[in-house]
Design a protein around this nucleic acid. Sequence first.
DNA 1: TTGAAAGCGCTAACAC
DNA 2: GTGTTAGCGCTTTCAA
Lengths: 348, 348
Amino acid sequence: MPYATLADIAKRANKSIATVSRVLNDKADEGIRISEETKQQILTFAKELNYRPNFLARHLVQKDSRVIGLLIPDIMQIFFNEICYYLSRKLNESGYDILLAHSYEDPEPERKAIEMILSRRVNGIVVAPAKGQHNLELLEDIRSRNIPLILLDRYFIDKIFYSVTSDDVQGSYRLVSHLIDQGARNILFLCGDRETSVTIERIAGYRKAFLEQKIPVEERLFLESGFFQKDGYKITRRLIADGALKGVEAIMGVNDEIALGVLEALWEEGVKVPQDILVAGYGDERYSKYLRVPLTSVQQQTSVLAEHTYRLLMKLIEKKKIPKINTKVSCQLIVRESTVRERQGGAA
Amino acid sequence: MPYATLADIAKRANKSIATVSRVLNDKADEGIRISEETKQQILTFAKELNYRPNFLARHLVQKDSRVIGLLIPDIMQIFFNEICYYLSRKLNESGYDILLAHSYEDPEPERKAIEMILSRRVNGIVVAPAKGQHNLELLEDIRSRNIPLILLDRYFIDKIFYSVTSDDVQGSYRLVSHLIDQGARNILFLCGDRETSVTIERIAGYRKAFLEQKIPVEERLFLESGFFQKDGYKITRRLIADGALKGVEAIMGVNDEIALGVLEALWEEGVKVPQDILVAGYGDERYSKYLRVPLTSVQQQTSVLAEHTYRLLMKLIEKKKIPKINTKVSCQLIVRESTVRERQGGAA
DNA sequence: TTGAAAGCGCTAACAC
DNA sequence: GTGTTAGCGCTTTCAA
């Protein structure tokens, strides 16, 4: 018998299960009187038997599991790692626990994970959807059932969900403007996945910057990549081999990991950053400042994103009505050596 | 009504709850016959009502929650991040879900997290204990109840628990031997926490290397630090300010993050690595190869650690008897620029 | 102040 | 093939 039950304690104490339950849940404050004697007795037996409440049973009746489902593509992506940390922290403080699920950027595991989370009757669910636009119907179904649901980082354009995201149009706009400023015109964007909101927004920001300078945008410069260093590395090696990097003056990665892979490939080929080509990342990871060439990046405030998500979630759980559907958190451009030309514009 | 129940379906289909349960759990293969007609009917209604099983109820009767509790100090420590990823991946494949809990390196939150995990009646629990030696009684209690429990990365010396750890004696020995080889004698170790097994082992490895060379070990060179970049940074700044770095020829960090902080502080002061001082990390993070000065580190095979943990856990759940209590995974030294003296030993 | 009893949603043994 | 019943461990009326 690994676990004692209320009945075990009741039998020992010669009291009813109800009384034991009342004592152990400290219902005294709710106006329910229990004699000090029974109370002490029950408490003693509970300790003796090493009683641990069974939340499955409790929550079955209470309809409240004190669990939040967090579904992310992949905790190895540092961005989601940080989100997970900050969100956990806040939720823990409020007595919620975390059921962590991965979609691995794949629709089918994502679907299964969502179903699993729902079957566990969580109090709320936070989803950073897998790349692309999948499981929309399922998510809409959840929403329509008034189960607290928040989309994080990535959302579905034109669909109504509560969401907390970075202002990627702005972030990308600032970055691209800076690159243009440095004299770059052919700016390659290793953009993750083109159907994902994050990328859609960043491309919008890219276009905005070009439009402002009245420079035409070349569609071929948006290249899908994965999200990891190895992806950035592979794609860059291939581009070099194909001679496709000719004329490219800057490369921006969808995150710093990709940028790291790009740098690796370039260095291997003896291409100098920033002299021969500019490279920028996104996300401003802890290490980016200390790379062989410090990396220009866009800082995303993961702790702020998590904070907003947390607050929104609490409100949804409390069934408050929330006017604001989409929360956007602004980003900051961090310029470092990797995108600063030494002799800036001989033409100037 | 966000969720339909078996009873709802039963009512619609004019069948008993039991039959509905049987259909939905596809008991056909277990020799239980159900007419195709009722089956289709029930399936249709289930879909129509968007039925989702209530795992709280199911697991209450089955005594099997298909959840594993993972308790780590902090998912922001990259090491634990990777462990979490690989372990999740394996567990997902076997149909287990993850309840993620943090101790924040603190005994009290750790205790609460353990209690929470137990109350949720997980099938197994993987713990990377908070630094120090805490909650030992609680963990021993779990063990004595035959609840599958595995200690990960950190363990309790002289206490019997199943554990999966890196061979830190060996890892540290190799690193320190290398540093001695490079002519360093005063090797400062920013060691995290002295009571944690990881550190105890690394100090043992350190001593072993010194013993082999018949060089006395100076106790004052073991300095407790945290586990993050900022900790490494702060401590190094302080050491510099105090003039305590005089004579120190090498600094090793308990992980790469700490080493990063050390590098940062040294650079700020114009101290050159490796010319003026050698610096090494531990863990070999993705970025360590690409730092301004590529960082020497000890590679810990997180995926192998996770794999062993997974296999052991499955065995424990299946109530197999396991002879091997402690599983050790070896580490590999990765030598890079940060610890290689340019003019190696003018004395040679 | 305490107990009896119902019921949360589900599974499983037993009956027909 | 399908229904009836008991029961998992707990909370929560309702009575006493």
